[in-house]
Design a protein around this nucleic acid. Structure first.
Lengths: 118, 118
DNA sequence: TGAAGTGTTATAGTTCATCTATAACAACTG
DNA sequence: CAGTTGTTATAGATGAACTATAACACTTCA
């Protein structure tokens, strides 16, 4: 499993890692039952601290995307299917936003606002 | 014009202010030609520093939603219509996410990822 | 023309999230 | 039992966010 981060980004590293996992879950690259690589392994591969990776994993656990246990690791839950179900709509919205010249930040903010509104 | 922020939120204050303006533009409450309240006024109303408000305004300027000039203030640009055009799609996506039990953070991240993918 | 209102820039300091480093601990696997 | 993994604890460094104050430049309007 390949994870990428951009150390120069203003987005926190743990958010970038969590985003990457969400992305792969929505794309179907990661499915229920799949195991995330051990945090220590990811930390070394990305040249990042263990805690940074664990914080990302814990975010994903808090939102139900993965289940974690000592000794066993982090396993993708059935919740991944829900993300996959949203993929097409998210892509459509993003494409429409691009046509209209609306930037990433703005459209993400729009969805955040819509989520709180509904 | 009413702006709201949550000082306890982990989201930066300037992001909250910018989000609020984007929200009102997408809802049609703010339209092209409308003027944002003076930054000093907003700062006092929200009990926040002038610079914090200006940073929000400058974010909005960078994405083309408002135009700013000394002495004149910040005026909403024609770009507001683009946000309004996305509103229904954003609401639909948010509603669908809610049905599926997908949290705000996750769906926003999904859209971010989709925007970079397309 | 001058006064008031506005964004812009500059400087400096405080606070807190982020990230790192190290270590020990607890649960699971084989 | 030994190895793997997440969990917890402690401590420190760095930088973004926020504040405070002040001066500056452009616009508007009386």
């Amino acid at each position: 499993m390949l994870l990428r981060i951009d150390p120069a980004s203003s987005q926190p590293l743990y958010d970038q890692i969590a985003d990457d996992v969400r992305r792969q879950a929505s794309a179907g690259t990661l499915r229920a039952g799949d195991r995330l690589p051990p945090a220590r392994e990811v930390a070394e591969a990305l040249d990042v601290n263990l805690h940074t990776v664990l914080k990302a994993y814990q975010l994903l656990r808090d939102e139900g995307l993965v289940e974690m246990r000592r000794g066993r690791g982090a396993v993708v839950s059935a919740h991944a299917a829900a993300l996959a179900a949203l993929r097409d709509d998210a892509l459509a919205l993003a494409a429409r936003a691009r046509e209209l010249g609306v930037g990433v930040e703005a459209v993400a903010a729009l969805v955040r606002a819509a989520a709180e509104e509904s």
